[in-house]
Every structure is written in structure tokens, then in C-alpha cells.
Amino acid sequence: MEIITEGLHGIGRFFLHPLTYFFIMVAFFVGQARVKRERKYFHTRVFDFVLESKYLFFPGILIGIVLSIITFIAGVYIPIGIIALLSLITVLLSGPFTFRWLSPAYVIGFTMVIAFLLPEGLAAEGPLKTWLTDIQEAPLSSLVALLALLLLAEGYLIWKVGGKGTSPAILKSKRGFPIGAHFSQKLWGVPVLLLIPGDGLVKLFSWWPTLSLQGEAFSLFLVPFGIGFFQKVQGMLPSESIENTGKRVLALGIAVMLSVPAAFFFPITAVFIASIAILIREFISIQQKLKDENAPFFFSKREKGLVILGVIPKSPAEKMEMKVGEVIVKVNGVAVSNVNEFYHALQLNRAYCKLEVNDVNGEVRFVQRALYDGEHHELGVLFVQSHQDREPEAV
């Protein structure tokens, strides 16, 4: 009962942590910047500005529950000074318009390296002195276990959620031709209920309750970890590219998890493991970027048909189950190869449209739907357009 009561108190303290509100604010501004970019390219927004906020706490909360149970059973504990350092590094790595650096490999990895390198004897008073002591005496084995768990969470989230709600954009090739690309930018809040050793919290807040485990005092605190992800895709389907990245990060998490026992027996190896995790995570990002940039452009003008760059939510195109990456070959029986031809063919029958589409596997399917007032000129599909086409916009 003591553990349950303290756990409920710890969950309530989640709303006391400033990172919770920091993540909400960052997600809001990133969403605003995305909408501005979409309006620039297509004269309309593709997704609402709350898209980033939509993914902020789900499914991260469910994953956080699982991780909280695992860390509690495994006896993973993190001093309050380490939590303060983690929060500071999280803020520093949060760029103004990107979540690129908010991987657990960077946040926890840099925390461990700093804790290992921090010199002793630094002058400080009050809570700061206690926090510096916590950092210098950091439980490296617990930190590397937490790193492994959050890397597994990151890999799973990228694999299963990272490819959803990607934002289309029009870029320029080296030769100046328009090409399509997709940006995936996600920030997942993963709140983990952690054991805080000692009476550090009680010294700050006299009302803070504690529980006793094997004769030692602990408090429970729900820490809102932020797992960020950013990836640009122009050489293949966004879902496939991002899924590959997720699987590679998941493999990194498994590798770190397998090395956790070594850190418990030899804590110094934890810093080495964290450093390798930083390098491998960065290698994954760089290799994906180079591979994508050297691949043929996936979303580019084709001799036959129009490749779908984006589908606006709740539009007729979405109701017709049209997908990003599919190629529209014919509209109302007329072959099309540019946006103007598509638009004119659509006008041949203002009450009904029939599309011949090659799906992402190259198989032909037919899509048809009755059109209503206001829909004949705006199905909700986005294309990459040549210089001869009219200005980019939703069609």
C-alpha cells in the first residue's frame, strides 16, 4: 500500500516537472513552422498545427508504464542531481525547429559522459552542492540500463509511428528541378516513474513522502523523457525509409541491453557503452541521409502518370483511399503526365471521376467516386509539378 500511495504521488508530480510544459511548447512551435512551410509550397496546410502535439503523449504514456514497471523491478534508481542534468541537456539539445538531437543516445549518453568527467571539489552551496555530488557519484549501471530501455522505446516508436503523418515538401534538385520530399518530425513524451534515493527531495520539499525498500529511503518521481525524431526522405517511400531507421535503432537498443550486465559488474564500462551508443546512433542518421540523397528521386516528374506526393486528411482523395507514392495514370479515361492535364481531365465529368492508379507495388487499381459541389477542383492530392505547370497547390 505504501508503494501504491507513493506511486500515485509520483504520478501527480509529473505535472510539477517543467519539461512537461516545455515539450508542449516546443511541439506547438514546431507545428506552426510546419504549417507555414506547407502553405509556402502548396498554398494550403496539409495537417493541422496540432499534429505534433497529437503524438506527444500517445503511445508514449503506455510505453512509459511498461518501462516504469521494469525499472522498479530491476531496482534502477536515479539521483535527483542526475535528473536535473538530464533536464538541462534535454533543453540544450532541443533545437528551435527540430527534434533531431532528442534521442536517448544523446541525452543520456552525454549525461553519463559529463558525470564521468565532472571534476571533484567544485564550489557550490545548497541544493546545487547536493546535485553536483549526485552527478559525481552517478549510478552508471542504472543509467546504462535506462539508456537501453529508452533506446528500445525509441526504435519501436520510430518503427511503428515515425512514418505516420509525414509532411510533404517541394525541394530543388542540384539541377534546379522541383522534387518532392517528406519530413517526419516527432516528439514523444515517455513518462517513467523512477526511484529517487535518499532524502534529496525531502530537503527541497518537506512534504515529499518517501518509502522504505530494504532499509533504504526512496521517493518516486515521474520523469517526462522526451524522445525526438527527425528524418527527411526523398529517395524512397517515407514509410519504408523510416521503418528501416526504426529497426536499426531497435537493434542498437538490444545491443546496449545485452551489455547492461557488464556495466553492473564493471561500472566504468557504462561510459564506454554510452559513448559507443552515441556514435552508432549518429552513424545511423548520417548513413540514412547519405543513402537517401544518393538514391534516385522518388517524388519527381515522370513521363507517364503523376506520383502522389501527399494526401490531405479528410479530403475526397483520402476517402478514395489514395496513398502517398501511388501513380495516377489516367483520369476519366485520359492519360495524364502533368498537373494541367490532370485538372482538365477531371473537368470532363464534373459529377464523377474515375482514376486508374498504379499502387506502390506496381499493380493497377481503379478508384472512382461521385463528386459534389466544391470537390470537382480539389480532390486533396498533392503532386510535384514542373515549371510549366501552374503554381503548386492542392488539386
Results as ranks from 00 to 15, higher is better:
I11D: 06
Y21L: 14
K36T: 15
R39K: 15
D48C: 04
V50F: 11
I61H: 01
I63W: 00
S68D: 07
S68M: 09
I73S: 04
G81T: 09
A84T: 09
T90D: 05
L93D: 10
P96L: 08
F99Y: 08
L102S: 00
V107R: 03
L122W: 09
E125F: 01
E125H: 00
W131G: 10
D134C: 11
Q136F: 03
Q136R: 15
E137D: 12
E137K: 12
P139V: 11
S141W: 07
A145T: 15
L151H: 00
Y156D: 00
L157A: 01
W159R: 02
K160Q: 00
V161H: 10
S167K: 06
I170V: 15
P178D: 14
H182F: 05
Q185V: 10
K186F: 08
W188A: 02
L195M: 13
W207Y: 13
E216R: 15
I227S: 02
F230Q: 09
F230D: 08
V233R: 04
I242C: 01
G253C: 04
I254P: 04
V256L: 01
V256H: 03
A263W: 01
P267W: 01
Q287N: 11
D292P: 11
E293Y: 07
N294G: 11
A295C: 06
F299G: 04
S300R: 13
E303W: 04
V307E: 05
V307C: 05
L309H: 03
G310M: 06
P313V: 06
A317L: 07
A317R: 06
E321V: 03
K323A: 06
E326M: 08
V329D: 09
K330N: 15
N338D: 15
A345M: 02
L346V: 14
R350G: 05
K354M: 04
R369P: 02
D373G: 13
E378M: 07
L379W: 07
F383N: 07
R390F: 12
P392C: 10
E393F: 07
A394R: 08
